[in-house]
Amino acid sequence: MSKVGENLSLANKFNHTTNHVFVFLEIFVHEGGIQSYVKDIFRAYQKLSADYKAEVFVLRDSPNSSNPWESENLKFYGFKTQSPQIGRFKMTLALLKCLLLQRPQHVFCGHINLASLIQTLCQPLGIPYTVLTYGKEVWEPLNARERHALTSASGIWTISRYSRDRACAANFIEPQQVQILPCAIDGNKFTPGAKQPELIAKYGLTNARVLMTVARLWSGDIYKGVDVTIRALPQIIQAFPEVKYLVIGRGDDQPRLAQLAKDLGVSDRVIFAGFVATEQLMAHYRLADAYIMPSQEGFGIVYLEAMACGIPVLSGDNDGSADPLQDGNLGWRVPHRDANAVATACIEILTGVDQRCDGHWLRSQAIALFGMDAFQKRLQELL
């Protein structure tokens, strides 16, 4: 194909006015907190003005993979290949052509690992860009190129005050340069309901008071605090002998956790449920009398999921969970490695006299602050 023909073909591909360009590492090939957050951005974007049009470039997604977000105002392009280098080259070329042909108003860089590329392409063309950050990837000092790309951006988004403060302290960023787009909860997807008898039977929870955690059980993720909650169980059992602890998730740390439960004499109280698919999570949340995760999170979407199901929550007291728990107004916050503090708070929750145990009130607060309507309004403000 001639150069002119190639350019005409590409122009036809990008055949509508583009307001925004989004660039991500991956969205559909794996499930996770970042991926869910990105999908919420798409869900909200599609409900904005019909005049808003965006191109979405995804480095590690298949180019022909179908997705429910493809629409007139969201066009997706995937660049997954056998060779990561070739995929990155193809995406860079396609992105540059899009920027030259469409001249979008703004580019949104979906990960710090892409920030240097976005800066290189956007700055010579005078196109402003914003870098989206989430948590740990920007909590430590970045290399010189990444830091320069971040500090040169016209904007930085993050999910919580804690993530903002950690990123700013580590990388010499002015806090006023960072804007917060918190995680969201779909109140239609996560709702209160009765405990399903078949799940009670499956996990042996008849007449039990159930504490629950949903977390990766990887040895690199012990900050999730499953081991701390297990250490708290003997003290909790003294007050509530019928307590059981349901742990949802999988990973290489499970043998250590199981041995810890055995050593403490509570192995009959700890149920490792393994992996549970997203569509089955709501029914599992409904099994819980309390959601317990004394962790260190960038935000902690699981707390919102539990609250939307009317389940009281416990988190760590030095992380991004301060936002979903509203500095303790919507839940218990304790030192994240303190088993005694976890036990004391769990006993308070199971006693049930605190307003934060009122499932109806808890759900209404969570949705008012972090429901999709609030998320869409905040996205509109930022755009």
Rank of each mutant, 00 (worst) to 15 (best):
G359D: 02
G78Y: 09
K262T: 10
Q259Y: 03
L114Q: 05
C168L: 08
L379Q: 01
F172T: 09
A94Y: 11
R43P: 08
T278Y: 15
A50M: 11
Q355I: 14
S2Y: 01
L281P: 06
S295Q: 02
A258L: 10
A215W: 10
V247C: 10
G359F: 00
D289H: 10
N73G: 04
L362Q: 01
Q280R: 12
K13C: 12
G371R: 00
P63S: 09
V107F: 05
G331Y: 02
R378C: 01
P241K: 04
V29N: 11
K39I: 07
F299T: 04
A339N: 00
E70K: 08
S267E: 14
L99T: 06
A149V: 06
T278Q: 15
N171L: 08
I27D: 06
A169T: 08
Q102M: 11
K90S: 06
T351M: 12
P141Q: 10
L281M: 14
K47I: 02
R145N: 12
I34S: 02
Q85G: 11
W332I: 01
L117Q: 09
G320K: 04
V342R: 03
L264C: 04
F275V: 07
I301V: 13
K189H: 13
I185P: 02
G187W: 09
D165M: 07
L264W: 03
Q176S: 15
I222N: 00
I180A: 04
V342M: 05
R147D: 05
A239Q: 03
K262W: 09
D263Q: 14
L150P: 00
A339L: 00
A374Y: 07
V58F: 06
Q365F: 09
Q376V: 05
Y291Q: 04
W361S: 04
I367N: 07
G274P: 13
L205H: 02
N340W: 08
N340T: 13
R209Y: 00
I311Y: 01
T351R: 14
L281I: 15
V131K: 01
G310Q: 03
P68Y: 00
R356W: 02
D51Y: 03
K47D: 11
S65N: 13
Y52H: 15
L369V: 12
G135F: 01
A345C: 07
Y223W: 14
Q196K: 14
A167P: 06
L99Q: 07
V243S: 01
S160N: 00
K202H: 10
I230A: 07
S154F: 12
K377P: 04
L350F: 13
A201W: 07
A288I: 01
S152W: 10
W361A: 03
A239G: 03
D221Q: 11
L96N: 12
G220D: 13
G251N: 07
K90L: 15
L246W: 05
V131D: 07
D354K: 04
R166S: 11
Q102V: 09
E146W: 06
E55H: 14
K195N: 02
E146V: 05
E174A: 13
